[in-house]
């Protein structure tokens, strides 16, 4: 007879990712979740602690500002990015910050990218819902990402109940990818994009999809691998909105080979991030 403790240990073993894991999609607790945290230090301790409990090794972090405005001003982007940088510095490099900008003010966005990516060593660019990805004001941002050799993570969703005015559909991300074939774009929220969204980006080899967003539906990661190839899928949690472990289980529990799982959990995103992310030799 297996004891309750043995069963729990068995389940924890089944959730073991079997190697290092990079999470492509994390926000500070300061942005979401109603946590009472004690500034950057408290944010780092609780968020990193929750991530490490499930085996996350590094986490790409983007602050959307403490007030989470849908179309942030340049000043709000700067404050958000300063917060992400502070979390990086307080976390011994656990958090890998992306630079959050708004295409509504493209010149300011490029200047902020230069400050944060070229100047402060951020490792990517984050775009949310200020403008849809079809908007030409994204173009200078994407061009800068190419110049600086960092990926762009673009939020996307297909909501039956209706997208927000500036919220991109997967087809918008495909349009962006075709306008910028040299850019490397991570389309966020596999489950939110759903199988139709996967088809929308299928012929865009420079689009990768993160596994975050929505519920842990059976078969979605397998579907993404079948349609895009395992090399175009990266693990993402969307924590703290979603649970690190629940989202990790979407990959660990998927009917995929260990090689494909390793690619999704580590190799693919490692290959997208610049060397200064410091991921070499961690396998």
């Amino acid at each position: 007879m297996t004891s309750a403790a043995d069963l729990l240990r068995l389940v924890r073993d089944r959730l073991d990712p079997g190697g290092p894991v990079i999470d492509a999609h994390v926000h500070p607790l300061d942005n979401f979740g109603g946590f009472h945290i004690d500034g950057v230090r408290g944010d780092v301790d609780r968020l990193r602690g929750a991530a490490r409990r499930v085996g996350i090794t590094r986490a790409c972090l983007f602050s959307l500002h403490t007030t989470v405005p849908r179309d942030p001003t340049p000043a709000q982007c700067r404050q958000a990015n300063d917060y992400a940088l502070a979390m990086r510095d307080a976390s011994d490099g656990f958090f890998l910050p992306f630079c959050y900008v708004s295409p509504t003010t493209p010149a300011a966005a490029v200047a902020e990218i230069d400050r944060c990516v070229a100047g402060e060593g951020m490792v990517g660019i984050k775009l949310w819902v200020a403008q849809r990805a079809t908007d030409p004001r994204l173009d200078p941002i994407l061009q800068r990402s190419v110049d600086l050799a960092v990926p762009v993570l673009q939020h996307a969703w297909r909501k039956t109940t209706g997208n927000l005015p500036g919220e991109s559909f997967p087809a918008d991300v495909a349009d962006l990818a075709r306008r910028h074939p040299q850019a490397r774009i991570i389309m966020a929220h596999l489950n939110g994009c759903n199988p139709r969204g996967v088809e929308d980006v299928r012929d865009c080899d420079n689009v990768f999809v993160d596994t975050s967003g929505g519920d842990p539906e059976t078969g979605m990661v397998e579907l993404a691998v079948e349609r895009l190839g395992a090399h175009r899928v990266v693990y993402g949690s969307d924590a703290p909105i979603r649970h690190f472990g629940v989202t990790l289980a979407k990959v660990v529990g998927a009917r995929l080979s260990d090689v494909d799982k390793r690619a999704i959990l580590w190799d693919n995103l490692k290959g997208l991030l610049p060397e200064r992310a410091g991921l070499g030799g961690m396998e």
């Binding site: 729990l8 959730l15 519920d215 649970h243 472990g245 979407k250």
Partner: peptide
């Protein structure tokens, strides 16, 4: 509809036995 391993994860990672 959802993956059972994920359902288990939210319990076993965060709570004592």
């Amino acid at each position: 509809l959802f993956m059972p391993l994920g359902a288990m994860a939210r319990i076993v990672f965060d709570l004592d036995d």
